[in-house]
Amino acid sequence: MRQAFSDTLVALAKADPNVLLLTGDHGYALFDAFRKECPAQYINAGIAEQNMVGMAAGLARAGFRPFVYGLSAFIPVRVIEQIKLDIAHDNLPVVLCGDGAGFVYSHLGTSHQSTEDIACTRAIPQLRIYSPADRFELVRCMTQSYECAQPVYLRMGKADLGDVHAGALSGSIEELIQLRVGSDTRVALLATGSMAKAAVDAHEQFFPDASVWSVPSIKPLDNASILELASRFNAFIVLEEHSTIGGLGSAVTELCSEFHPVRTLRIGVNDRFSHKCGTYQYLRVEHGLDLENIRKKISSFVGLPASVKTA
């Protein structure tokens, strides 16, 4: 995924000299290619995120197309007011790239983990929120961010979990993308970011009759598709590496509660910090987001027996 990020950024920058990359002194090896290919479009703004985002607004006002890179714990959360006031208020075409969302920096603790960033950004008008599941969604998120010329928060999570798509995507990233087809109408799995792979794994190992969708765009949400699914399925399972408060699960339930209520299990982080340290996989288990915990939660919620490998 990081390679795809670098490649796409270089391609966009070579095609349009107005594309600039601003980094808050992050992305050491990630930007080697960019610095080599487009040195005049690379700006290390120093360890000064608030100023960096404000400057990006100024650059965008003057016609540039800034991509602002940082860890998702800092971009967007540390600079939420700059995003609201300097960028979103005036609908400026700035792409805020937050890397390492969720528990990626598992050993570093709360300062570098980011499980509240969607909640913090969702209520900001005119700001789009993209949350790609793999490198193919990432590339399409980036090109669509450039094409739409509006403010975007691009949430990048764990990079090496494997693809959920077979190849490049061409459709709008603001629509649901079905990952797995199942015949069981009791439950539909909706997942975003890193948890799309977990949903696919859950389908393949435990719930082969369950259908799975990826939700690469948290905002705008594909309301029409979700409501159509709500009319066909008895229950939703929403999976995200983010707090169950204010993320995709909240967005889906808010929508459905108004137009077509459907029982929904929100699988995410249960309103607490990580108190312990360990590998990424350890923290996924610790927060109940590993495959076995997911299986148990789904089974319990919809009454499916454990390990139903129906034909």
Partner: peptide, 22 residues
């Protein structure tokens, strides 16, 4: 600029100045 929350306009201005240089 949209200011009022203090300490914002200065950075936007730095961005505008950088744009003119670029």
């Amino acid at each position: 600029v949209t200011s009022g929350s203090l300490g914002h306009g200065f950075s936007v201005g730095v961005g505008l100045a950088l744009a003119a240089k670029l």
